[in-house]
Amino acid sequence: MKVKFFATYRQIANCKDFEIEAPADVLGLLKVLCRRWPEFSNKIVAPDGESLGADAIVLVNGRHIQHLDGVRTSLANGDTVTLLPLVAGG
């Protein structure tokens, strides 16, 4: 599966995207990312270690995970996960 980064998360990961074997769910993926890039730790996972960081946006195939199964949204190879911090414009 593919993981894409935008805004400051791209700077943390130092890449635009990468391919990875799909973990079982979004939370599993977030934990993999935190291990690989420790700077993500206090951003994409909340202090309880079980939910999404308050200022992170995660999309699975373009859908916000809040409208799927949250961090329990299951993942499969072929999926695209998009990660970015809260941003706005207009």
Binding site: F6, A7, L59
Partner: peptide, 17 residues
């Protein structure tokens, strides 16, 4: 956020959704 990237930061996310 807005100081760093301006409003153009929306381009990628709107494309993703």
């Amino acid at each position: 956020g807005m100081a760093a990237y301006g409003t153009q930061i929306l381009m990628n996310i709107l494309n993703e959704v």
